[in-house]
């Protein structure tokens, strides 16, 4: 029983981080119609930057603050100087461009930091075990869940209580709307893109102590994040949240019961959902 609770918590923690990554991806996709193939590479880049900050300053907290901001800056530069220019050529060009950026980041990371696994240890105060209902559980994972929930609440607050949030939601629902609203569209796009990469950046630093920093990080998280937004439905935050948690649990328990095929389970899940509902669980039908 205790093992199940522990696995459940593991799954929950991973699911929350997955949602942090996927929500930025799905927001940008819903609002700008751009699927950023490099999104998870930003996630990985942030983990490396976090590692570097820790190596220089020794402070995990500083890393958690600085690395995501640097990552968001890189994301904004990419939106401003690359994506915007190819927007006129249509979604194919945007996909291919972001794919190119993905390759550049992942190879650049290898060139700078090498291919070995780099450890990033959690701050001392969090590397203890806490007792929850008789189960010894690492405090860091609890912190991770708390952090993800905090960001989630922040995002919900911005989305539902501010003018910017209103615009973003309107734009996700109907891309044509934004132009009619008479607002500074490029600025809103840039903000959303920056916020999306920032969340991926936070996720990258936050999960690094659990997964270690390695060039495989992007691929590992990438597929899961893409599956989350496909299954959840393009542009649907609620769908992404639900599916991210489900994916987290599925992979955690999959490792427990079917260690060989844990990674395949998610794909099977995706194929089943798509066979029934090709637009994803909460997606809207293409007209």
């Amino acid at each position: 029983m205790e093992a199940y609770i522990a696995q459940g918590m593991h799954g929950l923690a991973y699911g929350m981080v997955l949602f942090l990554v996927a929500s930025g991806l799905t927001l940008v996709l819903g609002m700008m119609g751009v699927l950023n193939m490099a999104h998870v590479n930003f996630f990985m880049l942030s983990a490396y930057l976090g590692y570097q900050v820790v190596a220089w300053t020794g402070s995990f907290w500083l890393a958690l603050l600085i690395a995501p901001l640097l990552t968001a800056g890189a994301g904004i530069l990419m939106e401003r100087f690359l994506l915007k220019k190819v927007h006129a050529f249509g979604p194919m060009a945007e996909l291919i461009l972001t794919m190119g950026v993905a390759f550049i980041i992942s190879d650049g990371v290898k060139a700078v930091w090498g291919t070995q696994n780099l450890p990033l240890s959690p701050p001392g105060s969090l590397s203890v075990l806490v007792n929850i209902a008789g189960v010894q559980y690492p405090a860091y994972r609890l912190f991770l869940i708390g952090l993800a929930v905090a960001i989630l609440l922040l995002m919900a607050l911005v989305l539902y209580k501010t003018r910017l949030g209103m615009i973003v939601r309107a734009a996700v629902a109907d891309a044509g709307m934004v132009d009619a609203l008479g607002i500074n569209v490029p600025l809103v796009f840039m903000t959303v893109f920056g916020a999306g990469t920032w969340m991926a950046g936070v996720a990258g630093v936050a999960i690094a102590p659990i997964l270690t920093v390695s060039p495989g990080l992007a691929a590992q998280m990438g597929m899961d994040a893409f599956i989350v937004i496909i299954v959840g439905g393009f542009g649907s935050l609620g769908g992404a949240f639900l599916v991210a948690i489900l994916c987290g649990l599925l992979s955690a328990f999959g490792v427990q019961f079917l260690p060989q095929y844990a990674s395949v389970l998610l794909f099977v899940f995706m194929a089943v959902v798509l066979a029934i509902k090709p637009e994803g669980l909460f997606g809207e039908k293409e007209s």
Binding site: L97, M99, G100, V101, F103, I104, I105, D107, G108, A111
Partner: peptide, 8 residues
């Protein structure tokens, strides 16, 4: 890296 640069 070169592949990516060419794509971009």
């Amino acid at each position: 890296m070169i592949l990516g640069l060419i794509l971009v």
